[in-house]
Amino acid sequence: MRPFDLTRPEELSAACRDTNGENAAFIAGGTNLIDLMKLEVETPGHLTDISRLGLDGIETDAQGLRIGATVTNSDLAADTRVREGWPVLSRALLAGASGQLRNKATTGGNLLQRTRCPYFYDTDTACNKRAPGSGCAALKGEQRNHAILGTSDHCIALHPSDMAVAMRALDASVELCDAEGESRRVGLEKFYRLPGKTPERETHLRPGELITAVHLPKAGGDRQVYRKVRDRASYAFALVSVAAVLRMKGGRIAHAALAFGGLGTQPWRDPEVDALLEGETPSQALFDKAGEVLMRDAVVHEGTAFKVPLGKRVLTAVLKEVTA
């Protein structure tokens, strides 16, 4: 690790001020940041500990739920309100990482976790995300945990989160705060960027800006499922995952929100998939169509080609389950 200063402020404004510099980073759980710092993939010269800012509460409000940024993945998954009203979120969290990691990893950090692309992790190889302009070793390298949706010629890195996938299906938004104390809310659909030519820029966070909370509106559907496919029974990243939030009315799909992990450069949601389903009667033909729409712009490589049929099959299975 590169040497760094560490501050542990107790005020939000101080934390944002401390972290305003070019090479400063917030740290809460640290499960991803310290991992990357040890490999010098991340090299901040300053860390601001945000664990003392009181951002670790979960509150119910008129719109839904406000989840503090430093609420741990464990606490969030176990929260009875979440288990009752937003079960897809609990399920997604419980499908991710390990018990130990969930006890440390936080809500804000999970949203910002970096890709698991092995070339991003390897400072001896080219990676446009880690070293802009250096190239992408993954394009002609070994692919498996890479994206097929939202990719570019510069980057096929996958967003690895489970939690964020459920949050996208739940129409979550993030609450941000900057050094001036300015606060804003951004829907997750507008929070992440596609890699394009600048894969190093993953979100629309501004310098010094901190995620202070995630807002979950009341769930649009009572039928919620999270299904994850992985290479072993537990403790592995998703090959494909699907979060589904549905409401049925009179035998038809009244509300559909599908989000996907293991496929996209960001936690993936495709409004056209949802639109296709809404108002329709569940059928195999409809589910097949949803799969076709989802994959219409997929860009596959040798190592990721399997994700198209796998993604479609899992989507179909989830839709069958959730509409049954």
Partner: peptide
């Protein structure tokens, strides 16, 4: 890696040993 032979997935996150649940 098909170009230079290096071990790509050289950690426990990506080289999958069976875990307890397996």
């Amino acid at each position: 890696d098909r170009r230079d032979g290096h071990a790509v997935n050289r950690d426990f996150a990506e080289y999958h040993l069976p875990v307890n649940a397996d």
